[in-house]
Write a protein that binds this DNA or RNA. Structure first.
Lengths: 147, 147
DNA sequence: ATACAATCTAAACTTTGGTTTAGGTCAAGT
DNA sequence: ACTTGACCTAAACCAAAGTTTAGATTGTAT
């Protein structure tokens, strides 16, 4: 497979694939005699994990670190395992943050639905916390815990 | 409250707060005669939603759009409501992606735990899909659905 | 042999979201 | 009045993650 096909398959642009290669994320990709990249299944598998780490917030330089460890062999197994433990933590933190955001978002939906019904924001803006429906008050309070 | 106190409260740096102000995210902040920003509770509330939108992936320019709508009054209620519907979708998509990533991460944890036990990656690398434990094979397959 | 699409590199450019710097002002306490 | 810490602006700077450009090469099909 050449770079165009890989681009279509993965959804990464051709220039991004070359950028990743240049920055050491795609290690030992084969080349034709003429210098054209020839991707195989192992490269696709590497891309799968690159995309996974990338979309879960890891930086290019950290992914490169992982790929370097992979190339270095069995002495780095522990580092790689720990990286995956750490990344699980990172992802769970991100999900928590998103779920917290969701609460404020849903509160605001309720708020603007009320404003829409009234044709004006005025009433709902002046409303007292006690007058919110219970579930909405709960959302509001959970979204305002921190400060 | 002045900018230093707000910075401590929100966790945003002073320069970030000034940057947000400059880019129209903090609308009509009061100033002392000398030109010093004086924040009140409504500004804190605005910051809460700014931080919520920001951490859930919205761009500064989009948040500014929302703030402009807020300033424009009741004619923009519908736009604001729709923005919150859209942002809910965005967040749910992000959570889905993170959960998908988690599957590959957990598969890799299993993989490297096996490698660690063996002292080498070799055995687990050569292992057949059928030899994976059922739950692990499931993780693997779910992480490889797309391509 | 020629045309043509696909590929290659290096280097410049772009965007986003800030941070840093330089050179001032403000305002509270002494 | 004077010091001092907190604040101000404008402008330059920065890093990350690509994208674009320009000019050259590859390799397949006619």
């Amino acid at each position: 497979m050449q770079i165009g096909e890989i681009s279509k398959k993965t959804g990464l642009s051709i220039s991004t694939l070359r950028y990743y290669d240049k920055h050491g994320l795609l290690q030992n990709i084969n080349r034709s005699n003429g210098g054209i990249r020839k991707f195989d299944d192992k490269d696709l598998e590497a891309l799968r994990i690159i995309i996974c780490l990338k979309t879960s917030g890891m930086k290019i330089s950290e992914i490169k670190q992982f790929m370097d460890w992979c190339s270095k062999g069995d002495t780095t197994i522990d580092k790689r395992l720990n990286m995956f433990y750490q990344q699980e933590k990172n992802i769970n933190e991100q999900i928590d943050i998103l779920n917290k955001s969701l609460k404020l978002i849903k509160f605001k939906q309720w708020y603007y639905e009320a404003a829409k019904r009234d044709g004006t924001e005025k009433n709902v803006k002046d409303m007292n916390l006690d007058d919110y429906p219970d579930d909405i008050r709960k959302l509001y309070e959970e979204a305002h815990i921190i400060w």
